[in-house]
Design a protein around this nucleic acid. Structure first.
Length: 571
RNA sequence: CGGGGUGUAGCUCAGUUAGGCUAGAGCGCACGGUUCGGGACCGUGAGGUCGGCGGUUCGAAUCCGCCCACCCCGACCA
């Protein structure tokens, strides 16, 4: 490809709106164009990379026994109502209506459609296990699109679904996908770690997310270096130790605390650690008020809380809701509270003599004890793991890292098969719901993560396996026809040799060309100039190294080929 | 949805505080010339609903109101 003809120009100054490196580089290099928030167009270079990413994924899915299919994006709304997911996903769906006023949604994922298809084509245990996958557009009206391609509203996802006769079979399918995902990310030159994750609202069992760790990521992950524990902060557990368990229960005592509303102020004023206090947090779970109690030094993990509450929707109460529920902000506690569901962190029953609200303005209680003074309807682990907490498994110190979630695998079980009636006939002649798993990778997000992981201050550094072209041929010809002729000749030779080459044939100064070559990030730069021709050579330079080397013209193609082969392989 | 921010040429921004006459700069783009190994130089030129609508005013990029878009931080996910 001639750079002079390429659709997509580099920009000297990146748009100010881009903050994360991948977003900035994608725009500055002219790879993508934004259409609206979370919706992008992909120009030739980006599209080439995306196709290579898809090919890597396709390879690994096929190797694992997956069969590729194509499913509709236009999905009848009733299908979503049948599984009950319509209510849950409603706000995230793009809705549409056909000319007969039949309601459709643009598929945000394809479990419903595929399970329905499965029903009509699979009848027997002999057809199982079955692994099918699709690579196609999904549409989600995300509340907040983010950071270029990291969080999109229209995006491409590889989704593979597994169908097994039993849970052991599902374990095997799951393991296959776990391995396939590891292969995909390795081949894409992208460091990734698997962390345990929330299996979501679909009653699944195991679940892992594949994370690329970077400050730019939007997920928090918890790691233990000594034993290898790795989990999304949403579900991460930790070792909880009661700080005051050995104390003898003391009589409760009310004290005036005017002007003290926060745990910080309260603890400071009473000269006690925040771990000596009991904090109250108000949530609405599926519209019902929930009183949440947790030790003052800890924070509520909303994923854990949602599960403990058995709720689909969970949000911090608004001021109106708090007043409506009759809570006393600043001095609330579960002591004497009636008619409201109380959920307590499981550390509270072990603590003694905590400071808690008195449930009336400007007053708190000293020496509050669980069991004697109050009880919760639900006692569960609802605390958020934090940096420095103890590892549940080994006691080591936990670390928090940010990550981009590039892939998610989970065991669905029978959620969809039961609701949609997807059964198979087993050996015993009985119809049984098929056991499913679901495994997704976002390709544009993967592309963004690849750039996050592979760039320097000058631009992108494509992993060879994904680079749109292997060679960036720079001609410093100007109007010197000898240089131009030699460049054209080498360009032809390389193409005939099957080498993917981007040829900078523009009438630009050397500085412009070199800077664009660095920005665009092809693995190998080959320069032809007056200077190299005087030595009857061309210059070869890897994007990853500052060093250049001369290759004789008569064996230039051979030398380039060797240089490509010598690149750090992504395999 | 809550909080914060930004909208002036393709990109980066000045001009808005204190309303004033043909709205500016750099880069990019087009043409001509000189240059040619790390974002060169000279000349000429094209390019603008100043986010939109309404209001105040003799006069609005500038003041007021409403709306919209985009970015960032939180609740969701690949």
């Amino acid at each position: 490809m001639r750079l002079s003809q390429l659709f997509g120009k580099t920009q000297r100054q990146p748009p100010a709106e881009a903050e994360t490196p991948s977003h900035r580089l994608l725009l500055q290099a002219g790879l993508v164009g934004q259409t609206s928030a979370g919706v992008y167009a992909y120009l030739p270079l980006a599209w080439k990379v995306l196709r290579k990413i898809e090919q890597v994924i396709r390879d690994e899915m096929e190797a694992a026994g997956g069969q590729e299919i194509m499913l509709p994006a236009l999905q009848p709304q009733e299908m979503w109502e049948e599984t009950g997911r319509y209510q849950i996903w409603k706000d995230l769906l793009f809705h549409t209506v056909d000319r007969r006023e039949r309601r459709f949604v643009l598929g945000p994922t394809h479990e419903e459609v595929l399970t329905d298809l499965f029903k009509r084509h699979v009848k027997s245990y002999r057809d199982l296990p079955l692994l099918v996958y699709q690579i196609q557009r999904k549409f989600r009206d995300e509340p907040r699109p983010r950071a270029g391609l990291i969080r999109l509203r229209e995006f491409t996802m590889k989704d593979l679904y597994s169908f097994d006769t039993d849970w052991e079979g599902l374990d095997v399918s799951y393991q296959k996908m776990y391995q396939a995902y590891s292969n995909v990310f390795r081949r894409c030159g992208l460091p990734a770690v698997a962390v345990m994750a929330d299996a979501g609202s679909m009653g699944g069992r195991d679940s892992h997310e594949f994370m690329h760790l970077t400050e730019v990521g939007e997920d928090s992950c918890i790691f233990c270096e000594s034993c290898g524990y790795a989990a999304n902060a949403e579900i991460a557990q930790f070792r909880k130790e009661a700080a005051h368990a050995s104390e003898r229960p003391q009589p409760a005592k009310e004290i005036p605390t005017p002007g003290l509303y926060t745990i910080q102020d309260l603890a400071h004023h009473l000269k006690v650690p925040t771990s000596k206090t009991c904090k109250a947090v108000f949530y609405a779970a599926d519209g019902q008020p929930v009183f949440v109690a947790i030790r003052g030094d800890m924070e509520v993990n909303e994923t854990k809380l949602r599960r403990a509450a058995g709720a689909v929707d969970l949000h911090y109460m608004t001021e109106d809701e708090v007043i409506g529920a009759g809570f006393v902000p600043g001095s609330a506690s579960a002591v004497g509270l009636k008619g409201v569901k109380v959920i307590a962190d499981d550390l509270l029953p072990e603590e003694r003599n905590l400071v808690a609200g008195a449930n009336k303005p400007d007053a708190h209680l000293l020496n509050v004890n669980y069991g004697r003074d109050w009880k919760a309807d639900v006692v569960a682990d609802i605390a958020l793991a934090k940096e420095g907490y103890g590892c549940l498994q080994c006691g080591g110190s936990l670390e928090v890292r940010r990550g981009i979630e590039m892939g998610h695998i989970f065991k669905l079980g029978t959620f969809f098969s039961e609701r949609l009636g997807a059964t198979y006939l087993d050996r015993d002649g009985k119809a049984k719901p098929v056991i499913m798993g679901s495994y997704g990778i976002g390709t544009e997000r993967l592309l963004a993560a690849v750039i996050e992981a592979n760039h320097d201050e000058r631009g992108i550094v494509w992993p060879p396996a994904l680079a749109p072209y292997q060679v960036h041929l720079v001609s410093l010809g100007g109007d010197r026809s000898a240089v131009t002729e030699a460049s054209e000749h080498l360009y032809d030779e390389m193409r005939q040799a099957g080498i993917e080459v981007l040829y900078d044939d523009r009438d630009e100064t050397p500085g412009v060309k070199f800077n664009d070559a660095d920005l665009l990030g092809m693995p190998l730069r080959v320069t032809v100039s007056q200077r190299t021709l005087e030595k009857d050579a061309v210059e070869v330079k890897a994007r990853t190294s500052p060093d250049t080397a001369l290759a004789p013209r008569d064996r230039a193609v051979e030398a380039i080929r060797e240089a490509i082969a010598g690149q750090p392989a992504a395999e």
